[in-house]
């Protein structure tokens, strides 16, 4: 089956749990394994947290979560229109964080890469960041 959805929400920490619930509920219709759901939930949580903590850094804004099921894979996007990332390669390095004082670990992107089959990040300073992830859905 093919299906897609788009959700827009305010960049509030309270919406992190909400975004995880939505992605789980959306994927349930293709009957995924527990481990696929758990991995996708974690990857979405990392991307949404990045949008809130780094993209908007405490200011207000909108986060967009898009998901698309195309036959055997899910394509998931998390987009913000915040400050953007000047050096995406540096930001994606394991353990790199711009906020060590907030107990950020710098492993968010590494976890997205571990849990998903593909992760790409497009960003431009001043206009926002788009994280696009793909996940194979076992039959």
């Amino acid at each position: 089956m093919n299906n897609r959805m788009e959700l827009r929400f305010d960049a509030l920490a309270e919406n992190e749990a909400f975004s995880r619930m939505v992605i789980s509920a959306f994927l349930v219709q293709v009957n995924p394994t527990m481990s696929v759901v758990s991995e996708v939930r974690t990857a979405v949580s990392e991307a949404v947290t990045n949008a809130i903590v780094h993209g908007y850094a405490g200011t207000t804004g909108t986060v967009v979560l898009r998901a698309q099921i195309e036959s055997d894979q899910a394509v998931i996007e998390v987009e913000d229109y915040g400050c953007g990332i000047a050096d995406v390669q540096k930001a994606m390095q394991p353990f790199y964080t711009s906020h060590p004082e907030q107990e950020r670990t710098g492993i968010g992107f590494s976890l997205m890469q571990s849990f998903m089959d593909g992760v790409s990040v497009t960003s431009s300073p001043g206009s926002g960041t788009l994280v696009r992830m793909t996940k194979r859905l076992e039959a």
């Binding site: 974690t42 949580s45 990392e46 107990e103 950020r104 670990t105 968010g108």
Partner: peptide, 13 residues
């Protein structure tokens, strides 16, 4: 029931 890297940061702290 769920933990992500923010939980990891809290534990390291």
């Amino acid at each position: 029931t769920f933990m992500d890297s923010s939980g990891v940061g809290m534990i390291i702290g």
